[in-house]
Amino acid sequence: MSTKQSSPSKLEIDIQFASAAIEEKVFALASSAAIKKWVKATVHLNGLITLRFVNLAEGKKLNFAFRSKDYATNVLTFSYELSKKTVTADIIFCLPVIQKEALEQSKPMRAHLAHLVIHGCLHAQGLDHERDKEAKKMEDKEIVLLTSLGFTNPYAPI
């Protein structure tokens, strides 16, 4: 008698960089394997997640083109496909903004980066923080995931 086993999800993770300098800075904080581990802890679907790390100019250009905001933001998520089994998304990280936030918030840069990778992946799966109830649900998931990965609660007072 044979039993049918469910196969593990097939999630492809592509990491891109706007420049060699940004690549060097990101990999000084976290290896490709670590970043992929953060994504896999958050996304349990088949599909493709592309993470792109950009500079201020590209971050500002994308935020203006897609959100009509004339400044660079920390993370932008573009979800193209989402179903019960599949996700396809591009997640853009503006490294200079992330570095500035970590410094201003007195957070370790690696922890802040992990938080924003998880945050972007949750957006790719349809979570949002526009309303208080949605924000609480998203924050709770972030805290659980970050804690499971060895990071502290990013919302705890310093």
Rank of each mutant, 00 (worst) to 15 (best):
Ala20Arg: 14
Leu51Asp: 00
Glu24Phe: 09
Phe93Leu: 06
Gln125Tyr: 07
Ala156Pro: 12
Val43Pro: 00
Tyr71Lys: 15
Lys4Tyr: 15
Lys107Pro: 05
Ser32Tyr: 10
Ala72Val: 04
Ala124Asn: 03
Ala72Arg: 00
Glu104Gln: 14
Phe17Arg: 03
Lys25Tyr: 06
Ala20Ile: 09
Leu51Cys: 05
Asp140His: 15
Gly47Pro: 00
Leu45Met: 13
Tyr155Pro: 15
Ile92Gly: 02
Ala21Cys: 09
Lys10Trp: 08
Leu51Ile: 02
Glu101Gln: 10
Phe17Tyr: 09
Gln5Tyr: 07
Ile91Pro: 00
Ile118Cys: 11
Glu142Phe: 07
Val117Leu: 03
Gln99Leu: 13
His112Arg: 09
Leu29Gly: 04
Leu29Asp: 05
Lys40Gly: 04
Gly126Met: 06
Ala135Gly: 11
Lys61Leu: 06
Lys141Ala: 10
Leu103Ala: 09
Pro157Ala: 12
Met109Glu: 13
Tyr80Lys: 08
Ser19Glu: 07
Leu48Ala: 06
Lys85Pro: 07
Leu95Lys: 02
Ile15Ser: 02
Ser31Tyr: 08
Met1Tyr: 12
Ile98Ser: 01
Ala18Cys: 11
Thr3Pro: 09
Ala72Ser: 05
Ala41Gly: 06
Leu51Val: 01
His123Glu: 03
Leu82Met: 07
Glu104Asp: 09
Phe151Arg: 04
Val39Lys: 01
Asn46Thr: 05
Phe151Met: 06
Glu134Gly: 07
Phe78His: 10
Ser148Lys: 12
Phe53Met: 01
Lys137Phe: 15
Leu48Cys: 04
Val43Phe: 05
Ser83Trp: 05
His123Tyr: 10
Arg110Lys: 13
His119Ala: 04
Ser7Cys: 09
Ala124Val: 02
Val117Lys: 02
Ser31Glu: 06
Ala33Ser: 13
Ile118Phe: 01
Ala33Val: 11
Val87Leu: 04
Lys137Ile: 11
Met109Ser: 10
Phe151Tyr: 15
Glu134Asn: 14
Tyr155Ser: 14
Leu103Val: 12
Asn55Thr: 12
Ile35Pro: 00
Ala114Thr: 06
Tyr155Lys: 11
Gln16Gly: 10
Lys133Met: 08
Glu81Cys: 10
Thr3Asn: 13
Phe78Gly: 05
Thr50Val: 07
Ile35Gly: 00
Ala89Trp: 00
Ile49Tyr: 01
Asp128Phe: 14
Phe66Cys: 05
Leu11Tyr: 05
Ala156Gly: 15
Lys133Pro: 03
Ser19Leu: 09
Asn153Val: 14
Ala30Asp: 01
Tyr155Met: 14
Glu139Thr: 12
Ser106Thr: 14
Gly120Trp: 00
Lys136Gly: 11
Asp132His: 15
Lys25Ala: 08
His115Ile: 02
Ile98Thr: 02
Ala89Arg: 01
Asp128Gln: 12
Lys100Cys: 13
Ser83Thr: 15
Lys136Arg: 14
Ile49Ser: 01
Leu82Cys: 04
Glu58Trp: 11
Ala135Glu: 11
Ser19Pro: 08
Arg131Thr: 08
Ala65Trp: 07
Glu23Ser: 11
Ala34Gln: 08
Ala72Ile: 00
His112Gln: 14
Ala65Met: 10
